[in-house]
């Protein structure tokens, strides 16, 4: 029994200690990690979408709960007006989930830009969804509330050659973004007001 107790204590002490140590390290790095996450994952895409905005959308961000999921919304200030919002949604691509950031003008519900963040598509084929500006540009100016489909599915978007599935994935993400936007629009406006006020 004494032996058993010794073993027991050893395990407990070890896990307690490691839990403690990790907690400490996590505390130290927490802030930095959060910022890094935003900066590297969404940062470039957001910057790209919100080209010409006068604030740093990464700092001016809102957190809103959407159906138990926390959403980060990035506010863009154009010509002095905080009228644009960008957020991330996900679609299924060829190689897995792809993250897509959609920027929307709150005033006219028009898409100001679409950009792919994370993906695992075939390099050179599906990955064009991220790198090919022409592909993303197709979305610009369309209404977020429209349904998006690639042309082979009877929609309006030209698929990337050889990467129909990746293209479909982006469309899916944008469609989802539309739905979220519809749900959250009132809250966003409210929150923004709060923030400004």
């Amino acid at each position: 029994m004494r032996e058993m107790l010794r073993l027991f204590i050893a395990v407990v002490v070890f896990s307690c200690l490691s839990g403690g140590v990790l907690a400490a390290i996590q505390n130290v790095t927490k802030e930095r990690i959060e910022y890094q996450q935003l900066k590297f994952v969404k940062g470039p895409t957001i910057k790209n979408i919100m080209e010409g905005c006068s604030n740093d959308p990464l700092i001016d961000r809102l957190s809103i709960l959407d159906e138990a999921r926390e959403m980060h919304l990035f506010i863009g200030e154009f010509e002095g007006k905080r009228n644009t919002v960008a957020f991330e949604t996900f679609g299924k691509g060829f190689g897995g989930v792809m993250g897509v950031i959609v920027g929307v003008n709150l005033e006219n519900d028009e898409i100001i830009g679409v950009g792919v963040t994370t993906h695992s598509e075939t390099p050179g084929v599906g990955s064009k969804a991220k790198t090919d500006p022409d592909f993303a540009a197709q979305f610009k100016g369309l209404s977020i509330l429209d349904p998006f489909k690639v042309k082979t599915d009877g929609g309006q978007i030209d698929a990337l050659s050889g990467a129909t599935i990746s293209s479909r994935g982006v469309c899916g993400a944008v469609v989802e973004a539309g739905e979220i936007y519809k749900r959250l629009k009132p809250t966003i406006i409210e929150k923004m007001k709060e923030k400004q006020g």
């Binding site: 070890f14 996590q26 990690i33």
Partner: peptide, 18 residues
């Protein structure tokens, strides 16, 4: 022990080489 260090690596990487 190993898991602890792995988590440390994980945290450090997130912080500095995201």
């Amino acid at each position: 022990v190993i898991a602890t260090f792995v988590t440390v690596v994980e945290l450090i990487m997130q912080a500095f080489a995201y």
